[in-house]
Nucleic acid binder design. Sequence first.
DNA 1: TATTTTAGCTAATGAGTGTTATTTTTGTAC
DNA 2: GTACAAAAATAACACTCATTAGCTAAAATA
Lengths: 196, 196
Amino acid sequence: MARIQTDKDVSRKEVILKASAKLFREKGYKAASMRDLAVKVGVEAASLYNHIRSKAELLHDICFNVANVFFEHINTVEASAQSPIEKLETLLRFHIRQMIENFEEVYVSDREWRYLVDPYLSNFQNQRRGYRKRFATIIQSGIEQGQISRIDASTAVLVILHAISGIDSWHRSTHKVSGEELEENIVTILIQGLKK
Amino acid sequence: MARIQTDKDVSRKEVILKASAKLFREKGYKAASMRDLAVKVGVEAASLYNHIRSKAELLHDICFNVANVFFEHINTVEASAQSPIEKLETLLRFHIRQMIENFEEVYVSDREWRYLVDPYLSNFQNQRRGYRKRFATIIQSGIEQGQISRIDASTAVLVILHAISGIDSWHRSTHKVSGEELEENIVTILIQGLKK
DNA sequence: TATTTTAGCTAATGAGTGTTATTTTTGTAC
DNA sequence: GTACAAAAATAACACTCATTAGCTAAAATA
């Protein structure tokens, strides 16, 4: 009988959550089975239910944990005294770093959220829409102040956010470029492209 | 007994293929069942097998049809007399237009290819790698000719290709921006960002 | 019209799914 | 060592899945 390993403050649920993020990223939420997860954790499938309520709960926790991190960050950015284009760069760099440092969770939250069930699904979609709107508002004020060239702000948001999600390919390929280099390259391409 | 509707030259398999692309885009390959597909086509699930070999075959056909279109296009671009940055713009515009006009198939090929099974999976991955390499080579020669600023070419490819996949959100949302506007916006952001 | 081919149906199969109730084992405090 | 709670295992459940077999009706061909 193999117990779930837990170092210090890490609860068994957190161990399962971490493993599920990796599994969902590798196979996709629907294709990942609780038996797969059990193997990763080193335990029988049914035993997982001593610590979690359902498979859906795992996805839910991953998605909303990630969403909260980004929401807290944009709060501080909006409250700061930076210029629009500086704010934009701060947001962009935060996204890139999150994608690198917290890869599995951010990736799952980005690609698998659609398998959330209501009411969490609608909730998540609303949050997502809200975030993008606030992002677009920053770009819009950059345009109005003449710092950013006259493009459709919401298109710019889509381009930026999806460009960042491209990091997954970098993450999987053999890391020929360092995280710092990657960050600088992306910032160069996207910020320069927006500057007037 | 309800027959599958076919206008003139469209075979019943093609009707099923089209419906499956839409279904796979909406629900994801794994979450989409043959019973779902049967409903969409207006027939019993088992009847589908008079025209197709398997669910896997549908995904395979979608992915490789799309891949072939892009391969043929990059062949003509490489053979053309355009400058690197013009080639880049041509490729970019083609991607955008394909994403708009051929949305379901391109989207599925982009997001669901990982559910292909070997040997098709490896095959597809190799093609994909090859395409990106050729894309990166064009950017690289643009850098060497001083048209494009000195960034990592393969990162630029990732940014561009993923930025385009962001169009799905536009496609789903209420089309507030026209296809042409969208194209111009994206080209502005990405090409200007690369120009020296 | 008679015959063959195509395309649909119903029914069933076996494998895999998330999850549960129940029982057994483990670690810990007295 | 005994008692107790936490965490594991076992076995089973009700479902869904892609796919096959066998049969029938409709369409195409002659």
